[in-house]
Design a protein around this nucleic acid. Structure first.
Lengths: 350, 350
DNA sequence: TCAGGTTTGGCAATCGATTGCCAACGCGCT
DNA sequence: AGCGCGTTGGCAATCGATTGCCAAACCTGA
């Protein structure tokens, strides 16, 4: 039978106290305050607890101490299900770090509709969580209530919101993409296409300006860059490729920088199907470091984010705030990306 | 300042009661027992609650009613970070279903390290959760305690553990892969390679026997199938390809069925780099339906799992058990996969 | 042996919401 | 007017663990 009887949890602290022949307060202290209880008594208590299979009821503890050890994570508007695993890797890394430190991780949402925001907010106010990791730009809000009103520590992951008073852990998008552009210039490229993501996105800003400013700084004239609109997904890359193919072959850019790997993959697919060859006809580079990149044909050059470190730093920062450390609200921790050049780009000077 | 003052949560039920001029019991009932409290009083209470920004303290409620509305999901040991998004898609679907029904979702993931198991077990016994969705084979265990001992409803997702007394929601791996093999036979293939995953894996059993038995049933002699060892990841596909390439070209199989998409991608990469062409020299098919498959060069044939439906069914089943419905422990819900043929396979009869 | 100090462990209040029980109240009917 | 019934809302116990306070027990050294 799939069990669901009404008995409350398991043995309680008073059962253990009775078994060990001491008071409940002694049990509590024996199990949580090292040094407060004499060793022989402590051993007696531990034996009793083990015998009964006692484990502390976290709900009761949380209620009493007015603090939980559960962190809520707010995921992006959409999960961008494609080739990149940044969300999953970030999630895993956050979960792992929190778990190691004795915290739990609650998922708040997988999309952002009105009702999920309501869920997020009531959870935040519900007293079951002690902090929030925000992997989204839009701050959840219901009526006049926002996350900030819940008085919970919040850390932003991936998106820089330090200016808005939320300590943030981010990649160095701007610098990283600049480095990639420089590498392409070194390889002799002078006509670029940048395939962007959604216009209102934080990463989009960083990345497109990284490309723009680097080209300008290197003296590449404005006509040397065409910006096409993508959507951070395969389809966006495909559509951008169709625009790209419209130009006469000799007028086409030789280097295409994409806002992320999914876009790059879609782009490559479409131009390859059209008979072009990557990297012979056009060099393509993505962003994110999707694991599959190394195994594509041709293998994909990319800018690899350290998702694990990002997650770890974010979790660590949040824990520090939760545990009382004073952290400036405009804290901004930047984690470096790594440029990974593979078959999809080539030196055209040779 | 990153806030962390000591005031307990927010306004409590007694604050609302005072504001509204009624007893706490009235507030509680006004907000949760429709019909129990006269309309005028109820409105007064609601107004007071809204004015103070009151939200119920879930911790206190859970303690009192001895039941939470939080489900724990146990993710696989490795997240199989590759091209497939089965874990993320499953997670999304589970989260969505649970959230819609007013439940919360806590994440845990197993690893080889002992402390993760301990975390899972203490959480299960800690009274903060009301059910578990298991996306992993190895049942977490500490000393003599297992998840089952916590007396919590458990549902297995992806892995059939119905024989072990855990209701399960799974894909029809066996039938699906059989269908794929039949399709390949129809295209004229008669020499097969199957690239497996890890030997001890549930899916591996299902899939390899699906291939074996179908070939046997179709009268393909035993020499028509070679089984190579993979590892459910890109590298496993690469290594299998190296074995494959050792044979003289005319003795090589023309159809390669892989245990999952990552394996297929690794395989294709390696044979392509070796100068073979897919599908001209060899047809390859994967399993899972990774979103990137459609955008690969050549696009990847696969057996697409309905991850969304799997997750939904699992969450739904768990909720039913949690809410008291009696469900046989050997319940097994099977969700069909869909064969998707793309460029990576070809008809060799023509 | 005793004063003074330090451990040790118990008592009971507390966290916030829920709920069984009961009293008060209002209504309709005789 | 009086009875009975249904409705409404308050009292207080309860869930399980923590912790301030205090008293008992123990130790030390003179």
């Amino acid at each position: 039978m799939a069990r669901n009887d009404d008995r409350a949890f398991g043995p309680s602290i008073s059962d253990v106290a009775r078994e060990a022949g001491v008071a409940t307060s002694t049990v509590s202290r024996a199990l949580t305050k090292p040094g407060r209880i004499a060793e022989p008594t402590r051993l007696k208590v531990e034996a009793a607890a083990r015998k009964l299979g006692y484990t502390v009821n976290q709900t009761a503890r949380s209620l009493r101490v007015g603090q939980t050890r559960t962190v809520m994570i707010v995921l992006p508007e959409t999960l961008y299900i494609g080739a990149s695993q940044t969300v999953l890797e970030g999630l895993e890394s956050v979960a792992r770090t929190l778990t190691e430190r004795g915290y739990h991780l609650l998922i708040a949402n997988v999309s952002r509709e009105a009702w999920t925001d309501e869920h997020i907010i009531t959870t935040a106010f519900g007293g079951t969580i002690c902090g929030v990791i925000l992997m989204a730009t839009l701050p959840p809000k219901v009526a006049e209530l926002t996350l900030a009103d819940a008085g919970l520590p919040v850390v932003s992951l991936h998106f820089d919101q330090s200016a808005a008073g939320i300590p943030s852990v981010v990649s160095n998008d701007f610098t990283a993409i600049a480095e990639a552009v420089l590498a392409l210039i070194d390889m002799g490229h002078s006509k670029f296409v940048y395939v962007g993501g959604r216009a209102d996105n934080y990463h989009e800003h960083q990345r497109v300006s990284g490309v723009r400013e680097t080209l300008a700084a290197q003296g590449v004239p404005a006509e040397g860059l065409e910006v096409l609109r993508g959507d951070f997904n395969f389809g966006g890359g495909v559509r951008a490729a169709e625009d790209y193919l419209k130009a006469a072959p000799e007028r086409r850019a030789t280097a295409v920088v994409c806002a992320n790997d999914d876009t790059a993959i879609g782009f490559i697919k479409r131009v390859t199907d059209a008979g072009l060859s990557v990297p012979e006809d056009v060099s393509v580079i993505g962003f994110d470091g999707a694991p599959v990149g190394a195994f594509l044909v041709p293998s994909l050059s990319t800018i690899q984010q350290s998702t694990t470190e990002l997650g770890q730093q974010a979790a660590d920062l949040l824990i520090r705030i939760v545990e009382g450390e004073t952290v400036p609200l405009n804290t901004r921790i930047e984690v470096s990306c790594q440029l990974v050049l593979r078959q999809s780009v080539r030196d055209i000077q040779a």
